[in-house]
């Protein structure tokens, strides 16, 4: 290894021009590949185009928007070398609580009859705050008590789900104001997803917040010696993940025009899968939002394609499982290759 490095011994040449092909390009090609397979199978078996159906594509993106919003937060957590299992449950919890502040006065069974017909900002703010608080608790536990992220967020996963059931004793929260449900109509969830993705893509790449996130994931000791307040930063990252889960909860409730305690079940696993398929390494220090967005679209395309081909949902889960593992295996090999390069 050393010998190879000595060869281009022109002392530090100005950037030799060829950066490596970014991981995202590879993942994007995978996405295109999957879509093309469906396209071909579609023509053969159903006599329809998969891609040339804007409606299908819109629905597909709509369906994964909520997963995508969570995945943006989860990606950041995974980059620090952690994991967040609680995001699905936090979606459920915030959906319930936010919806309870968004009920219309015309609905006879409002949870807080005195607090009906509130301006749209109130339920949204409540949802975001609840999510932020859940994330903060996760981060605080991990940073201060040093328990593994897996355990801290597992605890939050179970607790938050419990809270969403306890909140109305299992009853759904309905009769939401139109002002509120507007966020879930049309293309809005996709807009929210992409806005969040752009914001955090920029934050991760161009701000100190991002640089520190990668540094902590790559080597927490070295990050600490370099003057980074690792504990405070971890709390920040988990709080951001919680905030985004809260946002996803608001969108979910708005889109369904009701909230139920079972909302968001298993979303955390889809979000982790999207991040991992998108090239985020579970070891920490590596990963990008662009990859996660593509990873989310891959999950969406797969689901949509199975429905399109009228294949049983059971197969869908089996294939999804295989793809997640394959993505990680490929990533491990890719990392190994980079190390030797």
């Amino acid at each position: 290894m050393d010998a190879n490095l000595e060869k281009p011994s022109t002392v530090y040449e100005r950037r030799a021009g060829k950066r490596r092909m970014p991981t995202e390009v590879t993942i994007f090609l995978v996405l295109v590949g999957i879509a093309l397979v469906y396209e071909i199978l579609g023509w053969i078996f159903i006599g329809q185009s998969f891609l040339l159906n804007p409606q299908r594509l819109t629905i597909m993106i709509l369906q994964v928007s909520v997963i995508g919003i969570i995945a943006v937060g989860v990606t950041q957590v995974i980059i620090t070398g952690g994991i967040d299992l609680s995001s699905g449950s936090v979606v459920g919890m915030t959906a319930m609580i936010a919806a309870s502040f968004a009920q219309s006065a015309s609905w006879s069974r409002a949870l807080y009859p005195t607090l009906t017909d509130m301006p749209f900002i109130v339920p949204v703010a409540v949802g975001l705050l609840i999510g932020l608080a859940a994330g903060f608790v996760n981060g605080w536990l991990i940073a201060k008590t040093k328990i593994p992220p897996f355990i801290a967020t597992l605890g939050m996963m179970v607790t938050a789900r419990g809270i969403s059931k306890w909140y109305t004793k299992g009853q759904p929260v309905s009769g939401l104001t139109e002002q509120f449900t507007f966020v879930g109509t049309g293309i809005w969830p996709v807009v929210v997803f992409l806005t969040v993705a752009v914001i955090f893509h920029i934050a991760l790449r161009y701000t100190r917040y991002g640089k520190f996130t990668y540094a902590i994931g790559a080597n927490p000791q070295a990050a600490r010696v370099s003057g980074i307040n690792v504990e405070a930063h971890l709390i920040k990252v988990y709080a951001v993940a919680g905030l985004l889960a809260g946002l996803a909860g608001v969108v979910t409730a708005a889109r369904a025009q009701t909230a139920q305690a079972g909302m968001g079940v298993m979303y955390e696993l889809d979000a982790i899968a999207a991040a991992v398929i998108g090239g985020t390494s579970l070891v920490g220090g590596l990963g990008r939002i662009t990859g996660t967005v593509i990873g989310t679209l891959i999950l969406g395309t797969m689901t949509s394609g199975f429905t399109f081909l009228r294949i049983d949902a059971f197969y869908q889960e089996i294939v999804k499982g295989v793809i997640i593992v394959a993505a990680v295996v490929i990533d491990v090999y890719r990392q190994k290759k980079k190390r030797k390069a």
Partner: peptide, 30 residues
């Protein structure tokens, strides 16, 4: 290896991490 390098990150990212504590930041952006 243990307390110095951010092994999987680039030379650039390794070099800039300490100075980012108080310099090269403008309006929150690096």
């Amino acid at each position: 290896k243990d307390t110095g390098c951010l092994l999987i990150l680039s030379v650039l990212e390794n070099m800039q991490i300490a100075v980012l504590q108080n310099r090269f930041i403008k309006a929150g952006f690096v």
